[in-house]
């Protein structure tokens, strides 16, 4: 890998005061950005510059900065989490960009994810879907059995684990031309449907989660496969197919 250098970039960032005001794209020049810095560090650098200029810093979501919490979002140059695959925005580095580049930074666009401020969107729609059925109601009052006493085939366990790797970041919704949340819901339905503990409530779960998903105003999947490619955790379209099977089974 080549040594880090400094680049000058132009940023076109969506600024919006709050959920009620109309936003717009603002242009910022940012010089001396190290290619070794992460994208979020670059935004920190921009905010420092804005604060020094006595301007309002850009609001954006971030937390763990190691690709596991699902907080960071950002639609960068026309792609969720920017121009690389299998990463969150905090894992995107400025070495992916060149000196003189213009970079568009926008919030997730979805009716179900309203903008709170600038690049921060309200993703509680995902929480409500999860609350509608993404759990196992087990009586834990003193007689819980050891999880390992239930035999689970290795293949099923692996698939359930891969589905459970979903961090709920919303990149699937953001990338989907239909604003569909089916990869997220498919993963959440799958992680339980594949395991014996989840099978007990499988029927209710899929019906309730899909109903909540529809009520939140997400679009309908047309199998373009964009979500699967942009998902930082590599959640597969197989999970949507599994949700479709589960929904059909639950409906008949």
């Amino acid at each position: 890998m080549s040594a880090a250098k400094n680049i000058n970039i132009t940023l076109k960032i969506w600024r919006q005061k709050n959920a009620k005001t109309k936003g717009g794209i603002e242009t910022y020049k940012l010089d001396n950005v190290s290619t070794a810095s992460s994208f979020l560090e670059m935004l920190d650098q921009l905010n420092e510059q804005l604060v020094n200029d006595r301007k309002e810093p850009v609001a954006f979501d971030h937390d763990c900065r190691e690709g596991i919490c699902g907080s960071c979002s950002l639609y960068i140059n026309g792609r969720a989490h920017g121009p690389d695959i299998g990463i969150t925005t905090c894992q995107l580095h400025m070495r992916m960009f060149n000196d003189g580049d213009t970079i568009f930074v926008e919030p997730w666009r979805s009716k179900a994810f309203p903008v709170i401020k600038d690049l921060v969107v309200d993703r509680t729609a995902f929480d409500r879907i999860q609350q509608a059925g993404g759990f196992v109601s087990v009586n834990t009052s003193g007689n819980t059995i050891d999880a390992n006493s239930l035999p689970v085939p290795k293949d099923d366990a692996d698939k359930a684990f891969m589905a459970a790797a979903c961090i709920g970041c919303g990149a699937c919704v953001a990338s989907c031309k239909n604003g569909s949340a089916m990869l997220f819901v498919g993963a959440k339905v799958s992680q339980y449907a594949l395991l014996p503990q989840g099978k007990v409530e499988a029927t209710e779960r899929v019906l309730n989660m899909v109903r909540q998903m529809d009520e939140e105003g997400f679009g309908n999947c047309t199998n373009t496969g964009a979500c699967e490619i942009e998902c930082p955790k590599g959640i597969s379209l197989e999970n949507i197919a599994r949700m479709n099977r589960e929904y059909l089974k639950a409906s008949l």
Partner: peptide
């Protein structure tokens, strides 16, 4: 009906979009 719902699901369009990076022309 599905297309109308899908259009409603994204009321504000992206200023910059690069859909060919992750999906085929036909599918979109």
């Amino acid at each position: 009906l599905l297309t109308i719902q899908n259009k409603k699901a994204r009321p504000v369009a992206y200023a910059k979009s690069n859909p060919s990076a992750n999906s085929s022309f036909a599918s979109r």
